[in-house]
Simulated scan of single mutants.
Amino acid sequence: MVRIVLKGLKETKEFGEKLGGLLEGGDLLSLTGDLGAGKTTLTKSIGVGLGVSDYITSPTFTLINEYKGRVWLYHFDVYRLEDEEDLLDLGYEDYFYSNGVTIVEWGDKIEEILPANRININIEKGKELDERIITLSGQGDRYDKIVKELNIN
């Protein structure tokens, strides 16, 4: 587990862009944190790092948005779901096990169906207005490689 303190929006954006630049097709990120913690803001920055030029919005009511970058970005927001069964109609497995990068906001709500090999990112508000505390955890070779390349051991 790795803990990072980001002091303001600029550092948060830089972190997201750097992370996005390291991601590859098949990577899945599960984002957790309170409402307003910055999950969508981080996702927007990751999208920039992935080369997405479209404006990234939260798919709270549509459940999933797709964006073309150097690899596809599949952005889920499962906040309003009752349970995992609501994702069956979407064909979630086609996204989770695709050649794109999948980001799931509120991933803790559907943890039972998420792939074991993933990157978990918890975002908390810090003491200052725009300060964020990021906790990275996960398992698998991709998690280990990304943490190493982020230089945050």
Rank of each mutant, 00 (worst) to 15 (best):
G26F: 15
I56P: 03
I103G: 15
G138L: 05
P59R: 04
S30H: 05
E85T: 07
L136H: 14
L129G: 09
K39R: 08
A116L: 15
I56W: 11
G51V: 06
I133E: 12
T60R: 03
T60F: 11
M1V: 05
K39W: 14
G8A: 04
K127P: 01
Y97H: 13
E105M: 09
G51P: 04
V71T: 14
L63M: 09
S137Q: 13
L90Q: 03
Y92W: 12
R142H: 13
L90C: 09
P59G: 09
G69I: 15
V104T: 12
R118S: 05
Y67G: 00
F61C: 05
L19Y: 01
G138A: 11
D144L: 13
E105F: 12
V101E: 07
L90A: 10
L136R: 11
L28W: 07
L114Y: 10
E149K: 12
L88D: 14
D77K: 06
S58F: 00
D141W: 15
K13N: 09
V52P: 07
L114D: 08
G16Q: 00
L35S: 09
G8V: 09
E85A: 02
L73H: 03
A37I: 15
T43R: 14
V48C: 05
L50M: 11
D83C: 11
E124R: 14
K109W: 09
N122F: 06
R80T: 05
E24H: 07
E131M: 07
S30V: 04
I113H: 11
G47M: 15
I64E: 01
L22A: 06
T135N: 11
E128K: 10
K7M: 05
G8S: 06
I56Q: 07
E112S: 13
